[in-house]
Write a protein that binds this DNA or RNA. Sequence first.
DNA 1: TGTACATCAGTGAACGCGCGTTCACTGATGTAC
DNA 2: TGTACATCAGTGAACGCGCGTTCACTGATGTAC
Lengths: 219, 219
Amino acid sequence: MENRRPSSRAKAVPARGSYRHGDLRRALLEAGLALAAEGGPEAVVLREATRRAGVAPNAAYRHFAGRQDLLEAVRRAAVAAMAEGMEAQMAALAQAGDAAQQARARLRAVGAGYLRFARTQTGLFRTAFGGSFTLASSGDPDTAGRSGMDPFQHLGHALDLLVAAGLLPAARRPGAEFLAWSTVHGLALLVIDGPLRGLAPEQVDGLAQRLLDMVERGL
Amino acid sequence: MENRRPSSRAKAVPARGSYRHGDLRRALLEAGLALAAEGGPEAVVLREATRRAGVAPNAAYRHFAGRQDLLEAVRRAAVAAMAEGMEAQMAALAQAGDAAQQARARLRAVGAGYLRFARTQTGLFRTAFGGSFTLASSGDPDTAGRSGMDPFQHLGHALDLLVAAGLLPAARRPGAEFLAWSTVHGLALLVIDGPLRGLAPEQVDGLAQRLLDMVERGL
DNA sequence: TGTACATCAGTGAACGCGCGTTCACTGATGTAC
DNA sequence: TGTACATCAGTGAACGCGCGTTCACTGATGTAC
């Protein structure tokens, strides 16, 4: 089952293979993601990524400007992974109920998806949102899930639906994403890095539900 | 104005001076705090602390087991500094109003103190609560402010007053500190490390007020 | 179809960096007699 | 009060570490003729 040489460009399946390695850029990115998943952003180490890709350390410089550049690419991919986690959570939603019920369920799914991702993919979460980070410029495909939306856009959309359903006064809509985000972000960090570290998943879920109740009531 | 030799133990003022340096442990701790204030926890570097104390690198090992031990001491001191920030915020409170008004004002002061500390002492905040951290064992004097309470105890106390004033159903009291903390912690991080980084202090205050409104209403 | 050439992905070796930490020491102090 | 001794805070030199990054290279590929 050895690789045949591509006649001109071929191999067909990967959009754009590179010459020697096949697709070193992708391999490095995936190694970086694995490192991030294992140990968070500071574990994304150039030399280790090249090691895992089976390549000399400096080969990375053909595809990334340096360590920082690789880390940034990994970060975007981690954000996209979070978006997909949220989408999975929303897909599991019942389609029943009126617009109001659906809007509320959607907002909760966004929050629950955030927390679930933080809990189950802690390394990636810390890479995406753990340290210094900025909002992706809207529409960056690297940070979007399958739906084409990034996590922040999902949150904004859920809040828009809440307004449309008459559950959130339009006057309170501006900036509401930051209030909701703060809340859930804070709990996520308390759970993964803070004093709530040891909590059983069910206990975390309980807290999360109360927190989301609080947001709904308070918003 | 040269130092006279102490006759037996003397120098009197510092509780327990060490022999050669005067009080190297304290000097290292303070250098560590300065480093943390400038660059957060990862800036707390043993060699640099000794450099600032004017001492050989390995001298630190007379007073700390190693880098981790120094960092931990710095962390506790940073937590205590936050407690004092909260206390300052509470001291500025009007004593007027009934118990209900006072209880609410107190909770807001705790939250506002937290956010203010995060904004004005970012490096120390990140050292205290930025990475992995655990709750101090209750009553640890190293993490307490002048009042003898640490930040978490201040929050708990404010919530107790809220219950006493009849503003928070006792049934909802258990775990409420984690909900309130999450909320404020999340906003703090969004402001210092996240997408809200560029915001003017007044805008942050505006968001903070809305957030605290939300907590009060939602709790 | 066949040969000469240009491209550029990956190589191999080496750098300087600052870090935390260990070792055997030295010399000012406090204490026993 | 005066001398001998023990203590132990701080010294000086050195370590190994893995990192990111640079250099001049090599050799498989794609392309021009």
